[in-house]
Design a protein around this nucleic acid. Structure first.
Length: 418
RNA sequence: GUGAGUGUAGCUCAGUUGGUUAGAGCGCCGGAUUGUGGAUCCGGAGGUCGCGGGUUCGAAACCCGUCACUCACCCCA
Protein backbone atom coordinates (compact mmCIF):
# COMPACT_ATOMS: atom_id res chain seq x y z
CA UNK A 1 0.00 0.00 0.00
CA UNK A 2 1.29 3.43 -0.88
CA UNK A 3 1.00 5.71 2.10
CA UNK A 4 1.04 9.46 2.49
CA UNK A 5 4.27 11.26 3.23
CA UNK A 6 5.41 11.64 6.82
CA UNK A 7 4.02 14.79 8.37
CA UNK A 8 1.61 15.35 5.47
CA UNK A 9 -1.99 14.80 6.49
CA UNK A 10 -5.21 14.17 4.67
CA UNK A 11 -8.07 16.37 5.75
CA UNK A 12 -11.02 14.00 5.46
CA UNK A 13 -14.67 15.02 4.94
CA UNK A 14 -15.38 14.95 8.68
CA UNK A 15 -12.78 17.67 9.13
CA UNK A 16 -13.31 19.89 6.11
CA UNK A 17 -16.28 21.85 7.52
CA UNK A 18 -14.05 22.85 10.41
CA UNK A 19 -11.33 23.98 8.01
CA UNK A 20 -13.74 25.84 5.78
CA UNK A 21 -15.11 27.62 8.82
CA UNK A 22 -11.63 28.69 9.91
CA UNK A 23 -10.74 29.85 6.42
CA UNK A 24 -13.99 31.73 5.92
CA UNK A 25 -13.62 33.43 9.29
CA UNK A 26 -10.06 34.47 8.45
CA UNK A 27 -11.12 35.88 5.08
CA UNK A 28 -13.99 37.73 6.67
CA UNK A 29 -11.76 39.37 9.27
CA UNK A 30 -9.13 40.26 6.68
CA UNK A 31 -11.84 41.89 4.60
CA UNK A 32 -13.12 43.92 7.52
CA UNK A 33 -9.68 45.47 7.89
CA UNK A 34 -9.29 46.14 4.18
CA UNK A 35 -6.84 43.38 3.37
CA UNK A 36 -7.11 41.83 -0.09
CA UNK A 37 -6.19 38.32 -1.05
CA UNK A 38 -2.99 37.61 -2.92
CA UNK A 39 -2.32 34.16 -4.36
CA UNK A 40 1.36 33.49 -4.66
CA UNK A 41 3.07 30.35 -5.95
CA UNK A 42 3.73 27.36 -3.77
CA UNK A 43 7.32 27.17 -4.97
CA UNK A 44 9.91 29.80 -5.69
CA UNK A 45 13.56 30.11 -6.53
CA UNK A 46 15.55 28.99 -3.49
CA UNK A 47 17.56 32.20 -3.32
CA UNK A 48 14.41 34.14 -2.40
CA UNK A 49 14.02 32.31 0.90
CA UNK A 50 17.72 32.33 1.68
CA UNK A 51 17.79 36.10 1.22
CA UNK A 52 14.62 36.98 3.07
CA UNK A 53 14.35 34.49 5.90
CA UNK A 54 18.06 34.51 6.62
CA UNK A 55 20.72 32.13 5.38
CA UNK A 56 21.70 30.97 8.85
CA UNK A 57 18.20 30.27 10.17
CA UNK A 58 17.12 26.70 10.84
CA UNK A 59 14.43 26.99 8.20
CA UNK A 60 16.90 27.74 5.44
CA UNK A 61 19.72 25.60 6.75
CA UNK A 62 17.88 22.34 7.20
CA UNK A 63 14.11 22.54 6.84
CA UNK A 64 13.41 23.46 3.23
CA UNK A 65 12.11 21.16 0.53
CA UNK A 66 14.58 22.08 -2.17
CA UNK A 67 15.02 20.42 -5.56
CA UNK A 68 16.58 21.23 -8.91
CA UNK A 69 14.41 22.26 -11.83
CA UNK A 70 15.15 20.58 -15.16
CA UNK A 71 17.60 23.31 -16.11
CA UNK A 72 19.32 23.02 -12.75
CA UNK A 73 17.79 26.06 -11.08
CA UNK A 74 17.29 25.40 -7.40
CA UNK A 75 13.62 25.62 -6.42
CA UNK A 76 12.02 25.41 -2.98
CA UNK A 77 8.55 24.68 -1.67
CA UNK A 78 7.61 27.79 0.27
CA UNK A 79 8.27 27.49 4.02
CA UNK A 80 6.32 30.69 4.77
CA UNK A 81 4.35 33.32 2.95
CA UNK A 82 6.04 36.64 3.51
CA UNK A 83 8.95 36.10 1.13
CA UNK A 84 6.72 35.28 -1.82
CA UNK A 85 4.35 38.13 -1.07
CA UNK A 86 7.17 40.63 -0.91
CA UNK A 87 8.71 39.19 -4.08
CA UNK A 88 5.40 39.68 -5.89
CA UNK A 89 5.11 43.19 -4.46
CA UNK A 90 8.55 44.09 -5.79
CA UNK A 91 8.28 42.23 -9.10
CA UNK A 92 5.02 43.95 -10.04
CA UNK A 93 6.23 47.36 -8.97
CA UNK A 94 3.43 47.69 -6.51
CA UNK A 95 5.32 50.34 -4.58
CA UNK A 96 4.58 52.71 -7.47
CA UNK A 97 0.89 52.31 -6.82
CA UNK A 98 -0.70 54.28 -4.01
CA UNK A 99 0.38 53.15 -0.57
CA UNK A 100 -0.41 51.70 1.83
CA UNK A 101 -1.33 48.29 0.47
CA UNK A 102 -2.74 45.43 2.46
CA UNK A 103 -2.50 41.80 1.40
CA UNK A 104 -3.51 38.52 2.91
CA UNK A 105 -2.75 34.94 1.91
CA UNK A 106 -4.00 31.52 2.90
CA UNK A 107 -2.51 28.19 2.00
CA UNK A 108 -0.04 25.36 2.53
CA UNK A 109 3.56 25.81 3.62
CA UNK A 110 6.31 23.18 3.76
CA UNK A 111 9.07 22.55 6.24
CA UNK A 112 11.04 19.37 6.69
CA UNK A 113 10.81 18.93 10.46
CA UNK A 114 10.01 16.01 12.72
CA UNK A 115 6.23 16.03 13.05
CA UNK A 116 4.77 16.71 16.45
CA UNK A 117 1.52 17.95 17.97
CA UNK A 118 0.67 21.15 16.11
CA UNK A 119 3.54 20.77 13.68
CA UNK A 120 3.46 19.11 10.27
CA UNK A 121 5.64 19.08 7.18
CA UNK A 122 2.81 20.40 5.08
CA UNK A 123 0.91 22.88 7.21
CA UNK A 124 -1.33 25.84 6.55
CA UNK A 125 -0.99 29.47 7.34
CA UNK A 126 -3.13 32.54 7.09
CA UNK A 127 -1.07 35.69 7.03
CA UNK A 128 -1.33 39.41 6.32
CA UNK A 129 1.20 41.96 5.13
CA UNK A 130 0.62 45.68 5.54
CA UNK A 131 2.99 47.62 3.23
CA UNK A 132 3.89 51.25 3.15
CA UNK A 133 3.55 52.81 6.57
CA UNK A 134 5.79 52.84 9.59
CA UNK A 135 3.04 54.33 11.70
CA UNK A 136 2.68 52.33 14.94
CA UNK A 137 -1.08 52.38 14.38
CA UNK A 138 -0.48 49.97 11.51
CA UNK A 139 1.15 47.57 13.97
CA UNK A 140 -1.84 47.98 16.24
CA UNK A 141 -4.25 47.36 13.40
CA UNK A 142 -2.56 44.12 12.42
CA UNK A 143 -2.47 42.88 16.01
CA UNK A 144 -6.08 43.88 16.47
CA UNK A 145 -7.02 41.84 13.40
CA UNK A 146 -5.17 38.81 14.70
CA UNK A 147 -6.64 39.14 18.16
CA UNK A 148 -10.14 39.69 16.81
CA UNK A 149 -9.94 36.67 14.56
CA UNK A 150 -8.69 34.29 17.24
CA UNK A 151 -11.16 35.64 19.78
CA UNK A 152 -14.01 35.31 17.32
CA UNK A 153 -13.14 31.63 16.95
CA UNK A 154 -13.45 31.30 20.75
CA UNK A 155 -10.00 29.79 21.14
CA UNK A 156 -9.24 29.15 24.81
CA UNK A 157 -6.64 30.86 27.01
CA UNK A 158 -5.08 33.23 24.54
CA UNK A 159 -2.23 35.47 25.62
CA UNK A 160 -0.75 38.29 23.57
CA UNK A 161 2.94 38.75 24.19
CA UNK A 162 4.76 41.88 23.06
CA UNK A 163 8.35 42.87 22.61
CA UNK A 164 10.45 45.27 20.60
CA UNK A 165 13.57 44.11 18.84
CA UNK A 166 14.73 47.65 18.16
CA UNK A 167 16.21 48.66 14.86
CA UNK A 168 18.76 46.41 13.23
CA UNK A 169 21.54 48.72 14.42
CA UNK A 170 20.12 48.56 17.96
CA UNK A 171 20.31 44.80 17.79
CA UNK A 172 23.82 44.84 16.41
CA UNK A 173 24.94 47.00 19.31
CA UNK A 174 23.15 44.88 21.90
CA UNK A 175 24.36 41.47 20.83
CA UNK A 176 28.00 41.86 22.01
CA UNK A 177 26.73 43.09 25.37
CA UNK A 178 24.55 40.02 25.75
CA UNK A 179 27.20 37.61 24.55
CA UNK A 180 29.79 38.87 27.01
CA UNK A 181 27.24 38.63 29.82
CA UNK A 182 26.42 35.04 28.86
CA UNK A 183 30.05 34.06 28.55
CA UNK A 184 30.55 35.32 32.08
CA UNK A 185 28.24 32.58 33.37
CA UNK A 186 28.86 29.94 30.78
CA UNK A 187 29.08 27.11 33.32
CA UNK A 188 25.59 27.82 34.66
CA UNK A 189 23.96 27.34 31.25
CA UNK A 190 22.66 24.11 29.78
CA UNK A 191 24.60 22.47 26.97
CA UNK A 192 22.09 23.71 24.44
CA UNK A 193 22.49 27.29 25.53
CA UNK A 194 26.26 27.09 25.57
CA UNK A 195 26.00 26.23 21.90
CA UNK A 196 23.35 28.87 21.32
CA UNK A 197 25.65 31.66 22.48
CA UNK A 198 27.36 31.30 19.15
CA UNK A 199 24.40 30.49 16.93
CA UNK A 200 21.56 32.52 18.35
CA UNK A 201 22.31 34.26 21.66
CA UNK A 202 18.87 35.87 21.90
CA UNK A 203 17.38 32.39 22.20
CA UNK A 204 19.26 31.74 25.43
CA UNK A 205 16.95 34.24 27.07
CA UNK A 206 14.02 32.15 25.91
CA UNK A 207 15.35 28.82 27.26
CA UNK A 208 12.94 26.80 29.37
CA UNK A 209 15.57 25.10 31.55
CA UNK A 210 15.18 26.53 35.08
CA UNK A 211 18.94 26.87 35.62
CA UNK A 212 19.22 28.95 32.47
CA UNK A 213 16.28 31.06 33.56
CA UNK A 214 18.00 31.74 36.87
CA UNK A 215 21.35 32.41 35.27
CA UNK A 216 19.85 34.97 32.92
CA UNK A 217 17.60 36.57 35.51
CA UNK A 218 19.52 39.85 35.47
CA UNK A 219 20.73 39.67 31.89
CA UNK A 220 20.81 42.97 30.04
CA UNK A 221 17.49 43.45 28.27
CA UNK A 222 17.28 44.29 24.62
CA UNK A 223 14.43 46.61 25.45
CA UNK A 224 16.69 48.84 27.53
CA UNK A 225 19.29 48.98 24.75
CA UNK A 226 17.08 50.20 21.94
CA UNK A 227 17.12 53.69 20.52
CA UNK A 228 14.69 56.31 21.71
CA UNK A 229 12.88 56.23 18.36
CA UNK A 230 12.38 52.51 18.65
CA UNK A 231 11.28 52.86 22.23
CA UNK A 232 8.80 55.54 21.29
CA UNK A 233 7.41 53.43 18.45
CA UNK A 234 6.95 50.53 20.82
CA UNK A 235 5.25 52.70 23.43
CA UNK A 236 2.82 53.98 20.83
CA UNK A 237 1.98 50.45 19.82
CA UNK A 238 1.32 49.50 23.44
CA UNK A 239 -0.78 52.63 23.98
CA UNK A 240 -2.73 51.85 20.85
CA UNK A 241 -3.49 48.36 22.06
CA UNK A 242 -4.59 49.70 25.43
CA UNK A 243 -6.90 52.18 23.71
CA UNK A 244 -8.59 49.25 21.95
CA UNK A 245 -8.88 47.28 25.16
CA UNK A 246 -6.50 44.55 23.99
CA UNK A 247 -4.46 43.40 26.94
CA UNK A 248 -0.98 42.02 26.55
CA UNK A 249 1.96 40.73 28.49
CA UNK A 250 5.39 42.25 28.00
CA UNK A 251 7.88 39.54 27.18
CA UNK A 252 11.37 40.98 26.86
CA UNK A 253 12.62 37.52 25.96
CA UNK A 254 10.31 37.10 22.98
CA UNK A 255 12.49 36.62 19.92
CA UNK A 256 11.31 36.13 16.38
CA UNK A 257 13.03 33.40 14.49
CA UNK A 258 13.29 35.03 11.09
CA UNK A 259 16.03 37.52 10.35
CA UNK A 260 13.88 40.15 8.74
CA UNK A 261 12.00 41.31 11.82
CA UNK A 262 12.68 44.63 13.54
CA UNK A 263 10.92 46.82 16.10
CA UNK A 264 7.58 45.31 17.08
CA UNK A 265 7.49 41.56 17.69
CA UNK A 266 4.39 39.78 18.94
CA UNK A 267 3.07 36.33 19.50
CA UNK A 268 -0.24 34.87 20.61
CA UNK A 269 0.06 31.69 22.62
CA UNK A 270 -2.34 29.26 24.21
CA UNK A 271 -1.80 26.80 27.03
CA UNK A 272 -4.00 24.28 25.20
CA UNK A 273 -1.50 23.43 22.51
CA UNK A 274 1.21 21.25 23.97
CA UNK A 275 4.79 22.20 23.35
CA UNK A 276 4.17 24.22 20.21
CA UNK A 277 2.09 26.86 21.91
CA UNK A 278 2.25 29.75 19.44
CA UNK A 279 -0.93 30.13 17.39
CA UNK A 280 0.04 33.24 15.55
CA UNK A 281 2.99 35.57 15.51
CA UNK A 282 4.40 38.44 13.57
CA UNK A 283 6.10 41.76 13.63
CA UNK A 284 7.55 44.58 11.64
CA UNK A 285 10.02 44.09 8.80
CA UNK A 286 10.86 47.54 7.49
CA UNK A 287 13.96 46.46 5.59
CA UNK A 288 12.74 43.41 3.73
CA UNK A 289 11.25 45.01 0.62
CA UNK A 290 14.46 46.89 0.06
CA UNK A 291 16.54 43.80 0.72
CA UNK A 292 14.66 42.04 -2.06
CA UNK A 293 15.38 44.80 -4.54
CA UNK A 294 12.39 47.06 -4.06
CA UNK A 295 12.22 50.66 -2.85
CA UNK A 296 12.50 51.24 0.87
CA UNK A 297 9.03 50.25 2.12
CA UNK A 298 8.12 49.66 5.75
CA UNK A 299 5.83 46.73 6.50
CA UNK A 300 4.13 44.79 9.32
CA UNK A 301 2.46 41.43 9.26
CA UNK A 302 1.72 38.16 10.96
CA UNK A 303 1.10 34.51 10.23
CA UNK A 304 -1.32 32.11 11.92
CA UNK A 305 -0.83 28.35 12.07
CA UNK A 306 -4.14 26.92 10.94
CA UNK A 307 -3.49 23.40 12.26
CA UNK A 308 -2.97 24.93 15.66
CA UNK A 309 -6.16 26.93 15.34
CA UNK A 310 -7.98 23.76 14.35
CA UNK A 311 -6.59 21.87 17.34
CA UNK A 312 -8.04 24.46 19.67
CA UNK A 313 -11.29 25.26 17.92
CA UNK A 314 -14.18 24.10 20.09
CA UNK A 315 -16.91 22.16 18.28
CA UNK A 316 -19.50 24.60 19.52
CA UNK A 317 -17.87 27.32 17.43
CA UNK A 318 -18.84 25.50 14.26
CA UNK A 319 -22.09 26.41 12.53
CA UNK A 320 -24.41 23.44 11.99
CA UNK A 321 -24.41 21.95 8.52
CA UNK A 322 -27.50 21.76 6.33
CA UNK A 323 -28.69 18.16 6.17
CA UNK A 324 -29.67 16.74 2.78
CA UNK A 325 -33.13 15.64 1.80
CA UNK A 326 -33.24 11.86 1.34
CA UNK A 327 -35.23 10.36 -1.50
CA UNK A 328 -36.49 6.87 -0.63
CA UNK A 329 -37.63 5.57 -3.99
CA UNK A 330 -38.46 1.89 -4.48
CA UNK A 331 -40.45 -0.39 -6.67
CA UNK A 332 -40.57 -0.65 -10.47
CA UNK A 333 -42.49 2.59 -10.80
CA UNK A 334 -41.28 4.46 -7.73
CA UNK A 335 -37.61 3.89 -8.55
CA UNK A 336 -37.53 5.70 -11.91
CA UNK A 337 -39.76 8.46 -10.51
CA UNK A 338 -37.21 8.90 -7.71
CA UNK A 339 -34.38 9.39 -10.17
CA UNK A 340 -36.34 12.16 -11.88
CA UNK A 341 -37.23 13.71 -8.53
CA UNK A 342 -33.60 13.76 -7.36
CA UNK A 343 -32.62 15.61 -10.48
CA UNK A 344 -35.42 18.13 -10.03
CA UNK A 345 -34.55 18.83 -6.39
CA UNK A 346 -30.88 19.33 -7.19
CA UNK A 347 -31.67 21.72 -9.99
CA UNK A 348 -33.85 23.62 -7.55
CA UNK A 349 -30.81 24.05 -5.31
CA UNK A 350 -31.75 21.46 -2.72
CA UNK A 351 -29.13 19.05 -1.43
CA UNK A 352 -30.71 15.65 -2.12
CA UNK A 353 -29.32 12.13 -1.75
CA UNK A 354 -30.40 8.53 -2.03
CA UNK A 355 -28.89 5.05 -1.84
CA UNK A 356 -29.16 2.95 -4.97
CA UNK A 357 -28.50 -0.27 -3.08
CA UNK A 358 -31.59 0.02 -0.92
CA UNK A 359 -34.59 -1.78 -2.38
CA UNK A 360 -36.92 -1.67 0.60
CA UNK A 361 -38.37 1.27 2.46
CA UNK A 362 -36.79 -0.01 5.65
CA UNK A 363 -33.31 0.02 4.16
CA UNK A 364 -33.91 3.47 2.71
CA UNK A 365 -34.99 4.89 6.05
CA UNK A 366 -31.93 3.49 7.71
CA UNK A 367 -29.80 5.22 5.09
CA UNK A 368 -31.79 8.43 5.50
CA UNK A 369 -31.20 8.30 9.21
CA UNK A 370 -27.51 7.78 8.72
CA UNK A 371 -27.28 10.62 6.23
CA UNK A 372 -28.66 12.84 8.98
CA UNK A 373 -31.51 14.00 6.80
CA UNK A 374 -34.32 15.96 8.35
CA UNK A 375 -36.79 15.18 5.57
CA UNK A 376 -37.21 11.95 3.69
CA UNK A 377 -39.34 11.64 0.60
CA UNK A 378 -41.16 8.31 0.37
CA UNK A 379 -41.82 7.36 -3.21
CA UNK A 380 -43.09 3.85 -3.93
CA UNK A 381 -45.28 2.52 -6.68
CA UNK A 382 -48.46 3.79 -4.99
CA UNK A 383 -47.12 7.34 -4.90
CA UNK A 384 -45.81 7.15 -8.44
CA UNK A 385 -49.28 6.18 -9.70
CA UNK A 386 -50.96 8.80 -7.56
CA UNK A 387 -48.67 11.62 -8.65
CA UNK A 388 -47.69 12.63 -5.14
CA UNK A 389 -45.06 11.76 -2.55
CA UNK A 390 -45.00 11.39 1.22
CA UNK A 391 -42.72 13.85 2.98
CA UNK A 392 -41.60 12.46 6.31
CA UNK A 393 -40.14 14.66 9.01
CA UNK A 394 -37.48 12.44 10.55
CA UNK A 395 -37.58 14.14 13.94
CA UNK A 396 -41.34 14.27 14.50
CA UNK A 397 -42.24 11.35 12.21
CA UNK A 398 -45.03 13.54 10.84
CA UNK A 399 -45.89 12.67 7.24
CA UNK A 400 -47.79 14.62 4.64
CA UNK A 401 -48.76 14.13 1.02
CA UNK A 402 -47.30 16.56 -1.48
CA UNK A 403 -48.07 16.46 -5.18
CA UNK A 404 -45.20 16.15 -7.63
CA UNK A 405 -45.72 19.70 -8.82
CA UNK A 406 -45.27 21.20 -5.37
CA UNK A 407 -42.35 19.23 -3.96
CA UNK A 408 -39.45 21.59 -4.64
CA UNK A 409 -41.31 24.68 -3.52
CA UNK A 410 -42.63 22.96 -0.43
CA UNK A 411 -39.21 21.65 0.61
CA UNK A 412 -37.48 24.95 -0.03
CA UNK A 413 -39.84 26.73 2.31
CA UNK A 414 -39.36 24.13 5.01
CA UNK A 415 -35.59 23.92 4.74
CA UNK A 416 -34.98 27.66 4.85
CA UNK A 417 -37.76 28.95 7.10
CA UNK A 418 -36.44 32.51 6.98
C1' G B 1 19.30 15.43 13.48
C1' U B 2 18.48 13.43 19.03
C1' G B 3 15.43 10.87 22.80
C1' A B 4 11.19 8.18 24.76
C1' G B 5 6.64 5.51 24.02
C1' U B 6 3.32 2.65 20.91
C1' G B 7 2.25 -0.92 16.58
C1' U B 8 -3.49 -7.05 17.10
C1' A B 9 -10.45 -6.18 12.59
C1' G B 10 -12.65 0.13 9.48
C1' C B 11 -12.23 2.57 14.91
C1' U B 12 -11.03 1.92 20.37
C1' C B 13 -8.64 -1.87 22.69
C1' A B 14 -8.26 -7.20 25.47
C1' G B 15 -5.13 -11.38 24.76
C1' U B 16 -2.48 -15.23 31.47
C1' U B 17 4.56 -17.63 33.20
C1' G B 18 5.06 -18.90 25.13
C1' G B 19 0.21 -23.86 24.24
C1' U B 20 -5.24 -25.99 20.02
C1' U B 21 -9.27 -22.61 15.32
C1' A B 22 -6.63 -14.78 17.90
C1' G B 23 -11.24 -12.10 20.99
C1' A B 24 -14.64 -7.88 22.75
C1' G B 25 -17.15 -3.18 22.16
C1' C B 26 -18.41 0.25 18.45
C1' G B 27 -19.09 0.49 13.20
C1' C B 28 -20.58 -2.23 8.60
C1' C B 29 -24.12 -5.88 5.91
C1' G B 30 -28.53 -8.91 6.58
C1' G B 31 -32.82 -10.78 9.40
C1' A B 32 -36.98 -10.58 13.39
C1' U B 33 -43.61 -12.21 7.55
C1' U B 34 -46.61 -8.51 3.42
C1' G B 35 -44.28 -0.21 2.67
C1' U B 36 -41.61 3.07 7.95
C1' G B 37 -35.23 4.75 10.55
C1' G B 38 -32.74 5.30 15.60
C1' A B 39 -33.75 0.95 20.60
C1' U B 40 -33.55 -4.47 21.46
C1' C B 41 -32.55 -9.49 19.88
C1' C B 42 -30.37 -12.92 16.21
C1' G B 43 -27.00 -13.92 12.24
C1' G B 44 -22.90 -12.57 8.88
C1' A B 45 -18.60 -10.35 6.60
C1' G B 46 -13.94 -8.46 8.05
C1' G B 47 -7.18 -9.88 10.75
C1' U B 48 -0.13 -11.81 6.35
C1' C B 49 -1.07 -9.89 15.07
C1' G B 50 3.63 -3.38 11.15
C1' C B 51 7.66 -6.03 8.28
C1' G B 52 12.14 -9.38 8.18
C1' G B 53 15.07 -12.74 10.67
C1' G B 54 16.17 -15.70 15.13
C1' U B 55 15.11 -18.90 19.70
C1' U B 56 11.48 -23.03 20.47
C1' C B 57 8.09 -29.19 19.61
C1' G B 58 5.10 -24.61 19.46
C1' A B 59 5.62 -17.14 19.01
C1' A B 60 0.68 -11.97 18.74
C1' A B 61 3.78 -12.79 23.26
C1' C B 62 10.85 -13.82 24.02
C1' C B 63 15.59 -11.82 21.24
C1' C B 64 17.83 -8.91 17.10
C1' G B 65 17.01 -5.78 13.08
C1' U B 66 13.86 -2.65 10.32
C1' C B 67 9.71 0.49 9.16
C1' A B 68 5.64 3.41 10.69
C1' C B 69 2.99 6.39 14.11
C1' U B 70 2.87 9.50 18.60
C1' C B 71 5.02 12.80 22.05
C1' A B 72 9.20 15.62 23.40
C1' C B 73 14.17 18.15 22.30
C1' C B 74 15.98 21.56 18.50
C1' C B 75 13.28 25.21 15.97
C1' C B 76 8.90 27.35 14.60
C1' A B 77 2.91 29.08 12.91
Amino acid sequence: MIKGIKGVKDILPEETPRWRFIEETARRWAGRYGFQEVRIPIFEVTALFARSIGASTDIVEKEMYTFPDRDGTSLTLRPEGTAGTVRAFVEHNRASDPLPQKYYYLGPMFRHERPQAGRLRQFHQFGVEFFGTEDPRADVEVISLLWGLLSDLVLPDLTLEMNSLGSSTDRAAYLPVLVSFLKGRLNRLCANCQRRIETNPLRVLDCKVPECRAATEDAPELLSHISSEARQHFQQVLDGLAALGISHRLNPRLVRGLDYYCLTAFEITSSHLGAQNAVGAGGRYDGLVEALGGPKTPAVGFAVGLERVSLMLPDRSLPPGIPPVYVAAFGPEGGPAGIRLLEELRRAGISAVTDYRSTTLKAHLRQADRAGSRYTILLGDDEARRGSVVVRNMDTKAQSDVSFADISRSLLSQISPS
